[in-house]
Design a protein around this nucleic acid. Structure first.
Length: 770
RNA sequence: GGGCGAUUAGCUCAGUGGUAGAGCACUGCGUUUACAUCGCAGGUGUCGGGGGUCCAAAUCCCUCAUCGCCCACCA
């Protein structure tokens, strides 16, 4: 036995032993209550990040603890296709090859991304193994596995049947660069400095950051309490603009802040979320001017018959340019018309951006929606009543706030990489379907389907299909299978959270697999608090909707590992550290222990390298204490430890007493998800009570032939290995194998120490049936 | 703008009413056989500021400051 613990010789070999021994796979025993955790899916868009690493460390502690306690324990792994995120990453790769997604028809693009993702999946699986995660690989799921896709579609059909699905125009967060819609919660607001234009609007001065949308302004709004504008309310005015006069009514909106700008604002229902709502309330026309590529479309104006040459030239100048360019182009024209009052160049405000960092262009699009109110209430109640408990408790507020303010869920994503929405449009009944497809020469053809069918067969259109855009009034059928040959399927896919929101059901084989019946509802959902709203709330909603039961009973939200500068890690700040990088030098055990100890109360925390070093040293300490005992056992035949065995002295009884206190503490703290306190308890007992004091005190006795001490040493030591195993699985398993006692079974499936002092090494409840 | 959280030893953090703690770092001493990735000994702090409740406050309340994060339709 080496005087140093060498993790590199151990980790791979031990992990293989566990996996090949089938210890990760639980045995279904109807007489026992299972313990189940679903691994929150890492995204297949890339490798795992710090958060994933942390959750694996914490969940494996719970899993190994329960497995040793004898529960049929399932930890189910999987990866998520992560629709938009993956597609963004993939398109970045495509760009390097000089291609874009528009070079592909739908099916080919899907297959190409599939291949791209396989590689990521393998990398992720490798990372999970490296962490020592005792996940049941035989139950591994991918969120695009055929059975998952089927269930997700069925759920949608069921929602539609229950009248909870509708299709409507809606102002959505549209990213012209990504070409897709984002849910409210996916959008981030970035502080930025922009020019604030003060423009003359007839008798008023309005302040705006977006002068280019003025061509489609349909009203002006002021606070009804604002005396300055009271007399104008309800009046309709002709306001001189860059393309002739605009007709606008002055309306009252209590949300207009009289102190901002001049207290009166322009209203663009088609390109602003607030204005859209206002437009609904006042029946204002919704007239989009920015198209899905982010370019401004002046066709509506240029098609008019009587327009002056000046206005025509202007419109032609702006036409088909990006909004931001038009903003620049119009400035001179505004000046020429004398419409600019002043420009505040240093106005800071929050601008919505997508995950890739592009500006969001609020746009009106037909979208698939889920009515949230009926799903939402039971989910809200489940947490209020304690059916689902959230740890730490103070995070609960976030959940309730989100539940109270939830909007209907916009499901449509204009991605290929995802689960295609099972809605079908009959091309004969819906001639206005706008279809884009690639013909045999790989040319992109677009148009109304009724026109396209004059020259192309529906079969060709289907095989080269890129997108179907169905105007709001189109008729549709929701069906998992195609309703007939004349139908085209919706090309939008589901929001990723719609499928991952069903993970507890789909991953277990809902609705009638043996696994689902046995393991559902699961026990603990452990994840980063950041996705409480995005993911956890959706799972509770859909779980109750689909099964009538909550999908899990405890939610533990761990803190996020902060960067060393105390801020959130982000690629753009360049402060990302990957804890995984510590593994080669210090070993997984050290990393896991460090992560567990840092994570106190679910608060965010920094993770310094010193900590990993400290626990590397600890692993070595554990190793050497074992080495000491083994060396002394050589040539000695000792009695099995028993509390009542004769010859125990005061120090023996004292160490047994402290050991039992430690067992109690570890159990108690783990039950409350206080990983840090559990780990510290065993750490300080082992090092400072057992190693520093007790082991030292036995040296003299052993020299004098007092082999009772050896029995106690072995008992306490092996019990410590058990207590430590959930935290540091590799070093403990390796040494366990070197002891000759009770080692017919690996440590991973040995029995968890009982708290009572009368327990002997070989006693206690066993979990031999695992 | 609203909400949540943090502020404790040089650093990273525990500690939630009863005379301040851990790890790392630091200082001194110590290597004939478990471990120098070690042992023994040692110093460390007006527990962010101010006010209040209490016999007693790092801990409860109020307030201010700084930092972090979440949410939000101020154009």
């Amino acid at each position: 036995m080496e005087p140093k613990y060498n993790h590199q010789d151990v980790e791979g070999r031990i992990y293989r032993m566990w996996e090949e021994g089938g210890y990760f796979t639980p045995k279904i025993d109807p007489k026992k209550k299972p313990f189940t955790i679903l691994l929150p899916l890492p995204n297949a868009s890339g490798q795992m990040h710090t958060g994933n690493i942390l959750m694996i460390a914490l969940e494996d502690i719970l899993i190994r603890w329960h497995r040793m306690k004898g529960d049929p324990t399932l930890w189910l792994p999987g990866t998520d296709h992560a629709g938009t995120e993956t597609q963004i990453t993939f398109e970045r790769e495509l760009k390097k090859e000089g291609k874009t997604r528009f070079n592909f028809d739908r099916d080919s693009l899907y297959k190409t991304i599939w291949d791209f993702v396989q590689n990521n999946k393998h990398l992720i699986e490798g990372q999970i193994r490296k962490m020592g995660a005792s996940v049941d690989w035989t139950r591994y799921k991918f969120s695009l596995d055929p059975d998952v896709v089927t269930t997700v579609r069925n759920t949608f059909a069921k929602l539609a049947n229950d009248g909870l699905v509708y299709r409507d125009d809606y102002i959505v967060n549209y990213c012209p660069t990504c070409g897709t819609t984002y849910a409210d919660i996916e959008v981030e607001n970035k502080e930025r400095s922009d020019a604030l234009y003060y423009l003359k609007f007839g008798p008023f001065i309005i302040a705006t950051t977006r002068p280019e949308t003025m061509f489609r302004d349909t009203a002006l709004a002021a606070n009804p309490k604002d005396k300055r504008y009271k007399k104008w309310l309800g009046q309709t005015l002709e306001i001189p603009g860059l393309l002739g006069p605009m007709t606008m009514t002055v309306i009252a909106d209590p949300e207009v802040d009289p102190k901002f700008g001049t207290g009166i604002m322009k209203v663009t229902p088609a390109h602003d979320t607030h204005d859209y709502q206002l437009g609904k309330n006042f029946n204002l026309p919704v007239t989009p001017i920015i198209d899905l590529n982010g370019r401004m479309d002046f066709t509506w104006f240029l098609n008019e018959t009587e327009i002056s040459e000046k206005f025509r030239l202007r419109a032609e100048k702006y036409h088909n340019k990006k909004a931001i360019e038009v903003r620049k182009l119009m400035l001179a024209d505004l000046e020429e018309e004398g419409l600019v009052e002043k420009i505040d160049q240093s106005y800071t405000h929050a601008v919505p951006v997508c995950k890739a960092g592009h500006d969001i262009e609020p746009t009106v699009l037909p979208n698939w929606f889920i009515k949230v109110a009926t799903l939402n209430k039971p989910a809200h109640d489940a947490v209020k009543s304690g059916k689902v408990k959230i740890y730490p408790k103070w995070r609960e507020v976030t959940y309730h706030r989100w539940m109270e303010n939830m909007h209907d869920w916009a499901l449509s994503r204009q991605n290929v990489w995802g689960i295609r929405i099972p809605a079908w449009y009959d091309v004969e009944k819906n001639p206005s379907l706008f279809v884009t497809f690639l013909n045999d020469q790989k040319e992109s053809i677009s148009g109304r389907v009724s026109d396209l069918l004059n020259e192309h067969s529906l079969e060709k259109i289907k095989s080269g299909l890129q997108t179907v855009r169905a105007p709001k009034e189109c008729s549709y059928i929701i069906s998992v299978e195609s309703p007939g040959a004349s139908y085209l399927q919706e090309t939008d896919t589901f929001d990723t959270w719609f499928s991952s929101g069903q993970w507890p059901m789909v991953s277990l084989g809902y609705p009638d697999s043996a696994d689902f019946k046995y393991f559902y509802p699961t026990n603990v959902l452990e994840t980063a608090w950041e996705i409480l709203s995005k993911w956890v709330s959706r799972m509770i909603m859909l779980g109750i909707y689909m099964t009538g039961e909550v999908p899990f009973t405890d939610v533990y939200l761990h803190g996020v590992v902060k960067a060393l500068d105390g801020r959130k890690m982000s690629k753009s700040l360049g402060n990302v550290i990957n804890p995984e990088d510590y593994i080669p030098e210090f070993g997984v055990d050290a990393l896991r222990m460090g992560l567990a100890v840092g994570n106190g109360n679910g608060h965010d925390y920094a993770f310094p390298r010193d900590k990993v070093i400290a626990y590397r040293n600890f692993a070595n300490k554990v190793w050497n204490a074992g080495r000491f005992i083994l060396l002394n056992l050589e040539g000695n035949s000792i009695a099995e430890f028993d509390k009542k065995m004769p010859g125990l002295d005061k120090t023996d009884k004292e160490i047994i007493r402290k050991l039992n206190m430690t067992i109690k503490t570890v159990d108690r703290e783990l039950e409350k998800f206080r990983f840090s306190l559990a780990a510290e308890a065993i750490y300080s007992f082992f090092w400072h009570e057992f190693a520093d004091k007790y082991v030292e005190s036995t040296k003299e006795r052993i020299k004098n032939g007092d082999i009772i001490a050896l029995s106690v040493l072995q008992h306490v030591y092996l019990t410590c290995l058990k207590l430590l195993h959930p935290f540091m699985p590799f070093v403990t398993e390796e040494i366990w194998g070197l002891f000759k006692k009770e080692t017919d079974r690996p440590l991973i499936v040995s029995s968890w120490p009982a708290r009572i002092a009368t327990q002997s090494v070989a006693g206690g409840p066993r979990c031999d049936e695992m």
